[in-house]
Design a binder for these strands. Structure first.
Lengths: 249, 249
DNA sequence: TAAATTCTCGCAAAAAAGTGCAAAACCCTG
DNA sequence: CAGGGTTTTGCACTTTTTTGCGAGAATTTA
């Protein structure tokens, strides 16, 4: 990884999270902490960030207000994202749906990960393109305006042609009896196709959406291999799912 | 491998990955690193890339963090965009390439316009989705990290299946003898396909790019129906193009 | 206050770049 | 197609940049 590349990556992380830790960056980019520190000081000299003990802060840290979306669920989504990312190994073909949890996952990807990401979600794809070692495939079709994802027969056909190693689904509703459900028909069809085209299916959801149901069924619970929430795997809410043979993280 | 050939290849790799390493290029093309370095410095002199220790980065790598770039040409692009938009009528199928001029056009669209826009440019598509009455079709394929457009055989095949009413091309170089030219092979192929799939072909370009040439030809001048610049149609620079039968706006 | 983490600083090895030069390839023109 | 001039390329050499490590100092945390 080139020096300049590292520095741009650091600034990008700073934009996303408002702070970075030397220790984290060091393991993420596979260089010594000394190197990271030198990068941080260089960037600090240029006024691009503020160096502090242990890492650096975004220059706008004081001014910036967190998105109204709610810091609560943002933290949850971040822990979910971290668990999810740990499942991705070098060389994998990864299929992802849309949604804010998936987006958070895209932002959490370590920079040295070499993989191919396939998605119809425009925000997610934009995020993937910021990662130096990731190949990005965008699935085309009609664009759904509010969710900024592509939906339709073309997209479905493309997905069905693929055979991904793993697929990550941002999940709107999950329930023991009804499995995964959606409120948008097109999105449901798409997720169905994704499940069929992947060796492993991982559902990401915050705990509020556990045991809820929406009108359109995507699939039975048994098709899911892994369920990721922000809760501990031992949490009683998850017991029933674990008993269905689903790995809970 | 010819020098020009090498340089085109380098720029292409840069579009796809946002970076190149001298060491990698050297083994890939079977020339010494010295030669690669000389190529990189040459391209850097022309402003096509940014030379850094170990290789080079695409220009957009920096611009991401300095969005204030290029205020000069912004006005020009805006007048071009306004002229271009006036050609679009309700109900049309519109094919657009990538580039900043096209992006400016997307921002200039009147809100009551009802049309279908088809593009592989992620920034442009994002812009289109903000317009309530516009249908948006995103062309999928591998994402070029530098230009944030999709390129490849899939994208080309999709475009060739279509028959659009009009297509707008952001043009890098246009010349009386060589027609429209590009520096990226994939993009050139894509634009070729767009031209073949449209009843009417419109080129958008700022006047600086008139009478310039780049390595890869997209098409002859005669295939172009309309040329839009920020100049008055009566400007002497445009006379020669008008005499070729091209409508100049 | 003690333990753990992070930082400073000098140094050495590795990687990349700069330099001067000669061979090879290319391009003319007669 | 021969030969003079130009461009391009590779090589040996030196110089610069980048990076990691170790030991001790400084800072944070418990």
């Amino acid at each position: 990884m080139l020096k300049k590349e590292r520095q741009v990556y650091i600034l990008h992380q700073l934009n996303l999270h408002n702070k970075v830790l030397s220790s984290v960056l060091s393991t993420e980019m596979n260089v010594s902490e000394d190197t990271i520190r030198r990068d941080l000081y260089e960037l600090a000299d240029e006024g691009k960030l503020i160096k502090v003990h242990g890492g650096a802060l975004s220059r706008s840290f004081n001014e910036v207000h967190f998105p109204s979306n709610g810091v609560y669920s943002q933290n949850k989504k971040n822990t979910i994202a971290q668990k999810a990312v740990s499942l991705i190994k070098d060389g994998m073909f990864v299929l992802t749906s849309g949604g804010t949890t998936i987006l958070e996952m895209a932002r959490t990807l370590p920079s040295q990960l070499k993989a191919t990401f396939i998605s119809g979600s425009i925000p997610a794809v934009l995020e993937y393109t910021h990662h130096p070692n990731i190949e990005v495939i965008l699935i085309g079709d009609k664009v759904s305006k509010n969710s900024k994802i592509t939906v339709g027969l073309e997209a479905m056909a493309k997905i069905r042609q693929m055979q991904a190693d793993i697929c990550f689904l941002g999940t709107n509703a999950i329930d023991l009896n009804h499995g995964i459900t959606e409120n948008d028909w097109d999105v449901a069809q798409l997720k169905k196709a994704m499940i069929d085209s992947s060796k492993k299916v991982v559902c990401l959801t915050i705990s509020e959406k556990l045991d809820t149901v929406q009108p359109i069924q995507i699939c039975e619970l048994k098709k899911i291999h892994t369920l990721i929430t922000e809760l501990e795997p031992t949490d009683p809410k998850l017991r029933a799912y674990a008993e269905e043979g689903i790995e809970v993280l």
